[in-house]
Computed example of a mutant assay.
Amino acid sequence: MLTVKMLKPYYIKADGDYVRVILAYQYFALFINEKVYQFVPTKSKEIRINRRTQEVVNTDALFAFQKGKDVIQVAMSELVSIPDFLLQLNEIAKPYYVREEEIIHEKNENAIIIGELEYENVKRLIDKALDERDKNAFDKLVELL
């Protein structure tokens, strides 16, 4: 049975799409069969989370844990099935998630840009209709403005 003893990031790195929680020795430990195993950065050493969906992306990552000479590898897919792990990870990454207001603002900006592009395109089509002396197309396009 797996439970989280301690989960602290060594450091956190955020870019446009992901939050990367970088792990180091003595910052991450699990109880595995009632024994404490310390994280060792021999395999994967980061947890990558999508900033918008708040989901762990690198579910195929393998993490190594050691107690004495005994080394156990645990897959990220197994770690995300532990509720305590997800709660602690969420608290760590929460300040880096994209807030709802940012998403709304981004959608509004995109809508404005698309509207401007459509307006410019209609103006070009009006110029084309004038060049071709196509009165029907000109009348229809002028109504769109």
Rank of each mutant, 00 (worst) to 15 (best):
D139T: 12
F63H: 00
H105T: 05
V19K: 00
K5S: 08
V71T: 15
K69N: 13
N90C: 05
D134Y: 00
F31G: 03
M6T: 14
A93R: 06
I126L: 07
L130E: 11
R52H: 13
I103R: 10
F31S: 04
D84R: 11
V80Q: 09
A137F: 07
L62D: 11
I12S: 02
L145I: 13
E118C: 13
V4D: 03
Q66M: 14
A93N: 09
L89E: 00
K5G: 03
V56E: 08
N50I: 07
F65W: 06
E106I: 00
Y18E: 10
V56S: 02
K123R: 14
L30P: 00
Y37S: 03
D60H: 14
R99Q: 14
R51Q: 11
E109T: 04
T59L: 15
K43D: 15
F31R: 02
A111S: 13
L23D: 01
K107E: 05
N108F: 11
L130G: 00
K94A: 12
K13P: 03
D127Y: 03
D127P: 00
L86F: 04
N50V: 07
R51K: 14
G16F: 09
K140L: 11
L145N: 09
A24Y: 01
E143N: 08
A64F: 03
I82G: 01
L30T: 01
L130N: 13
E102I: 04
N50E: 12
Q38G: 06
E106Q: 06
T42V: 13
L141D: 04
K94T: 07
E100V: 08
I112T: 11
N33R: 14
I22Q: 05
V4E: 00
L7E: 00
I49A: 09
L141H: 07
A93L: 09
I114A: 15
A75G: 15
Y27A: 01
I22N: 08
E120S: 10
K45C: 01
Q26D: 15
Q26L: 15
N108A: 11
T59P: 06
Y25S: 14
I47R: 02
R52F: 05
F31C: 06
A137R: 13
V74P: 02
A29M: 14
R48L: 13
D134V: 03
T59I: 15
L79T: 05
K35T: 12
R133Q: 12
E143H: 04
V142F: 09
F63W: 06
L30V: 08
I113W: 07
I32A: 02
A14N: 09
Q38A: 11
G16K: 12
S81D: 14
K107I: 02
L125P: 01
K94W: 04
F39D: 07
M76E: 04
Y25G: 05
V40A: 05
E78Y: 09
N58V: 10
D131S: 09
A29P: 05
P95L: 02
E118Q: 15
E116C: 07
Y27V: 02
L86A: 04
E101Y: 04
H105Y: 06
A24L: 01
T3I: 11
V57C: 07
N110L: 10
K67Q: 15
